[in-house]
Design a protein around this nucleic acid. Structure first.
Lengths: 287, 287
DNA sequence: GCAAAAGTGTTCTTCGTACACCCATGA
DNA sequence: TCATGGGTGTACGAAGAACACTTTTGC
C-alpha cells in the first residue's frame, strides 16, 4: 500500500510527557526504543497519527498501547517542527503532557520497556525529546499558577506536607510550612479526609455539639471567597533555575530527607471547588 | 510531480493570528479567501508548510507573502488537528500569534485582500478559525500577566491612557486611572518620552538644579526592585467573560468614548527593562 | 460654555512574610 | 535519646482598592 500526494507531506506524530509524583520527586514515564533510530535510547511514549484521529486521540492511544495507561486529560504542549528532528523523514510531532497518580500506575506495568525516571535521573533522550521535556517542565510550572494540580498527581488522601513537597518539586523552591498550610487552606479547595474528619468530630463534638472553634483552621472557610493565593519567597525562586529540577544544580540535592511523611492529618480535595478552579482558571499561586 | 509514502500523511499548514491596536480597540488581520473552500470568507493568513522550513518559518513566510508584514516574534498557539477541519484533505494546522504596531502596518498594505477587523466586528471565519481566534485571545490574556505586551502593540511613545486602554481592551476590564498609573510606574518599565522629559526638566530645573521632588511620580523609581504588580478589581473581572471582547456581550459597548486621547504626558518603554521582563517572565499583572 | 479627559494623594484593609517552641514518632 | 517531622499563632510591613476635585482641552 502506498499513498501519493501532489505536494510533499510531513509525517505527523504525537508524543506524550507523563508526569508522576512518588511523594518526594517528580517523575517522568519513558519508553526504551526497540528500533532504530535511537535504538536503546529512552523516549516519550508516542507514535504516528492515523488519518481518523486527532493528535490528542493519537497521543491517548499510543499511551495506552505502549504503557497501558489510560489518561483522560492531556494538555497540548505544542508542535515541534524543526526540519531535521527525525533522521528518517520529515516528522512534525505534537506533544502533550499528562499527570497521573502513583496509584493509577502500580497496577498496569505490563508494558515491557516503560519505566519511571525521577526528573534528575532522566538520561539523554531520543530525538528532540530533551527539549520537549524542558518545555513540559516549564509549562507545568506555569500551569500550576492557575490550576490546582495536586488532584491528578496525589492519591485521594494526602498530608499537607505531601502536597507541599509536590509544589516544591515542581517549582524548585522551599516554602515555610506554616504559611503554605495557611494559604492552601484559605483557598477552600481542601477538606479533611473522611477518617480524619470523623476523628476530628470525635475529639471536638463529645461535649459541644458544634464544631470546636479552636479547629477553624481545619475547615475550609466556606463563607469567604477564595481570593488570591500567593506562596513562598520571591528571593528563593529568583535564584533557582529550571536546571535545578534536572539535577544539574545541586541546590535541591542538599535537603533530601530519608523518609516520607510519617503521620499527619490527611486532606483531600474538594472536588467541586477543584473542578471550578480548573475550569475558570481563577486559582492563583505565587512564589 | 507527486510524492508517495508508505503510510498516509496529513498536510501541515501554519496560520497566523495577527493582533493590532488602534488606540481604542484590539484588531485582527484577516485575508479574504479567493479560492474554494470557503471562497469569499475571511481567514487568517497562512498556508502549507514546505519541507525545508519549520512551522514558524512557514508562518512568517506566509505572512510576508500575503500581507507584506515582516514579523519577528511569533508565538505558537498550538496544533489544531480535528479530523475534518479542512474539507479538502486531512490538514493539521499549527497556529501562531503575533503583535504588531499600527505604525508598522500603514506602509505596507499592498496585500490585496488583507484587512484589519476590530475584534467585535470579526465575521464568521473559514475553517475552524473562529475557534483558533478564541484560543488566541485566551492566550493573549494569559500572556499579558507575565509579559509586558505594549511595546509590540503601541507606537514608541504613548500616553498612560493609551496603555490603559490597551490593557482594558485585552482583558475586558476597566481600571481606576490613578491606580493603573501608580502601579505601572512602580514597575520601572516606563520612562517619560524624550520630549516630555525635556519639558519636565525645563519646568523643574530653572530654579533648583536637582529634579523637582514634587514630580517623583514622573520618574520610574530606579532604586527599588520592580516587585509584583497587580491591577484592577477582581470582581469586575470575574463577571466578564471572554465573549465580551467579541461583542456578544454589551458590557463593553456602553463605555465607548468618541475620541482617542487628546493630550497627556507621553511615555515610552525602557527597552532594557522591557526585554528583561520578557525574557525572565517575571513581570506580573493581576486584575 | 460644556463635555470629556488629564493630573494628582490619601486612607483603610488585606495579605504576604518571617519567625519559635513543644510534642509525637520511629530509629 | 535523638533526629525528623508535625502542630500551632503573631506581628510587621507592603501593596491593593476605593475614592474626589481641579484643570485643561477640543468642540
Amino acid at each position: 500500500m502506498s499513498y501519493t500526494y501532489q505536494y510533499p507531506h510531513p509525517a505527523v506524530a504525537a508524543d506524550c510527557v507523563v508526569f508522576g509524583f512518588d511523594g518526594r520527586e517528580l517523575q517522568v514515564l519513558l519508553i526504551e526504543r526497540g528500533l532504530d533510530p535511537f535504538k536503546g535510547a529512552w523516549a516519550f511514549p508516542g507514535g504516528f497519527m492515523r488519518m481518523d484521529e486527532s493528535a490528542e486521540e493519537c497521543a491517548q492511544r499510543e499511551l495506552r498501547e505502549e504503557t497501558t495507561l489510560n489518561v483522560q486529560v492531556l494538555k497540548q504542549l505544542g508542535a515541534f517542527s524543526a526540519v531535521h528532528r527525525d533522521p528518517r523523514e520529515r516528522v512534525v510531532s505534537i506533544a502533550f503532557y499528562a499527570l497521573v497518580r502513583p496509584s493509577d500506575v502500580t497496577g498496569g506495568d505490563d508494558a515491557n520497556q516503560a519505566r519511571w525516571f525521577a526528573l534528575r535521573d532522566v538520561p539523554q533522550l531520543a530525538f528532540d525529546h530533551d527539549f520537549i521535556l524542558r518545555k513540559a517542565m516549564q509549562r507545568l510550572r506555569e500551569d500550576i499558577y492557575f490550576e490546582p494540580v495536586g488532584f491528578e498527581l496525589l492519591d485521594r488522601e494526602f498530608t499537607m506536607s505531601e502536597l507541599q513537597r509536590l509544589y516544591e518539586a515542581i517549582l524548585g523552591v522551599r516554602f515555610d510550612r506554616r504559611n503554605f498550610e495557611k494559604k492552601m487552606l484559605q483557598t477552600g479547595i481542601l477538606q479533611l479526609a473522611e477518617e480524619d474528619e470523623a476523628d476530628f468530630m470525635d475529639r471536638a463534638a463529645p461535649l459541644a455539639c458544634e464544631p470546636a472553634p479552636t479547629y477553624s483552621l481545619s475547615k475550609p472557610q466556606q463563607g469567604k471567597p477564595a481570593g488570591k493565593v500567593f506562596f513562598g519567597s520571591k528571593r528563593e525562586m529568583k535564584t533557582m533555575s529550571i536546571d535545578a529540577l534536572f539535577g544539574s544544580s545541586d541546590r535541591l540535592s542538599e535537603p533530601q530527607p530519608k523518609k516520607v511523611g510519617r503521620k499527619g492529618r490527611k486532606f483531600s480535595f474538594n472536588k467541586e471547588k477543584y473542578d471550578h478552579f480548573k475550569q475558570n482558571n481563577n486559582f492563583r499561586f505565587e512564589f
